[in-house]
């Protein structure tokens, strides 16, 4: 087991290297000049040249890449081009907000998806199944920014049930924090809920057709035992995969939602940094997102073993 984890961690290195090349080239080859963004209404040819020199942008791109790679190998992600804040601080400051939103969205998606998916599978072809399927199609089809805007308009602006945007740290005021996270979590988690429900349903249908389930029914086991103990646990394997990827995707999933709800998370930082061509910050966030995907994948593989003891890592 330990050997397996170590091997997987080592295999991440070449992937991480390719990610550094990809992110560096993509952001640097995108048109736009951070010096112009930084200078704004105060630009002059001398000031532009000074910033290029200060940021090393006057060097060939491969030299810039090697310098950057050397720095990150030493754990130095540099400072933000636009705010001069250390990149590590900029990200870690915002990570709690993103994690809170991502966790709440994931919980929302699972609370909706697993019961509805199970009902839809057990009562296949019934009205409940059609309603659940309808919700799925709507959830996947509606972009989260649209859901966000509708939620803000109805529940925040019109009915005044929830605050509009903003973030209160969980440690500061748990009740207000949860009050603030509800709308963005619903907006962000609804698409995931729809997908998870679809997976739960199809996987559950497949499992319910298995011989051992038929045997369980034949033995006279109660429906609760058959559905929840025999069927659901096994049906959740594909759901675990997809949820794992959703955990890994919290950062990029939050990009749009955080902007709509003025949520001070990593996603919003990413959006602003991309439009500001804040190379150092964008590069660090993409690396973080890539790592969280890789770690989530590893985690999913480890959870498989708990869900299905037949899987072995030897």
């Amino acid at each position: 087991m330990l050997t397996y984890v170590l091997r997987r961690l080592l295999l991440m290195l070449p992937v991480a290297f390719l990610v550094t090349v990809g992110v560096f080239m993509l952001i640097h080859l995108t048109p736009g000049d951070p010096a112009l963004i930084v200078l704004g209404e105060d630009r002059s040819p001398q000031a532009i040249a000074a910033i290029h020199q200060q940021l090393g942008l006057d060097k060939p791109i491969y030299v810039q890449y090697v310098i950057w790679l050397g720095r990150i190998a030493h754990g130095d992600f540099g400072r933000s081009i636009t705010t001069h804040q250390p990149v590590g601080t900029a990200i870690t400051e915002r990570l709690p907000a993103t994690l809170e939103l991502g966790t709440a969205a994931l919980l929302w998606s699972l609370i909706i998806a697993i019961p509805l998916g199970t009902i839809a599978a057990v009562k296949r072809g019934s009205l409940a199944d059609y309603i659940a399927t309808g919700i799925t199609v709507a959830g996947v089809s509606l972009p989260n920014f649209f859901i966000g805007v509708v939620l803000i308009f109805v529940l925040s602006v019109s009915l005044r049930l929830f605050p509009f945007g903003g973030y209160i740290p969980l440690g500061q005021d748990p009740v207000e924090s949860l009050h603030h996270v509800v709308l963005p979590a619903i907006a962000l988690g609804t698409a995931g809920a729809a997908i998870n429900m679809r997976f739960t349903r199809s996987s559950m249908i497949e499992v319910l057709n298995n011989d051992y389930v038929r045997t369980a029914w034949a033995k006279g086991a109660s429906w609760q035992r058959v559905i929840f103990i025999h069927a659901l646990k096994n049906a959740l394997i594909p759901v675990v995969t997809i949820v794992g990827l959703q955990i890994g995707g919290i950062i990029e999933g939050a990009v749009v939602t955080e902007t709509v709800f003025t949520w001070p998370g990593v996603g919003r930082l990413a959006v602003e940094s991309i439009s500001d061509r804040d190379y150092t910050v964008v590069q660090a966030i993409v690396l973080l997102a890539a790592f969280s995907y890789m770690l989530a994948n590893l985690l999913v593989d480890l959870v498989y073993r708990w869900v299905d003891p037949r899987i072995s890592y030897s």
Binding site: T30, P31, G32, D33, L36, I37, R43, S275, D276, R277
Partner: peptide, 10 residues
């Protein structure tokens, strides 16, 4: 996109 437009105009 803004940064591209800004650079080309400048």
């Amino acid at each position: 996109e803004f940064a591209t437009y800004q650079q080309e105009c400048a």
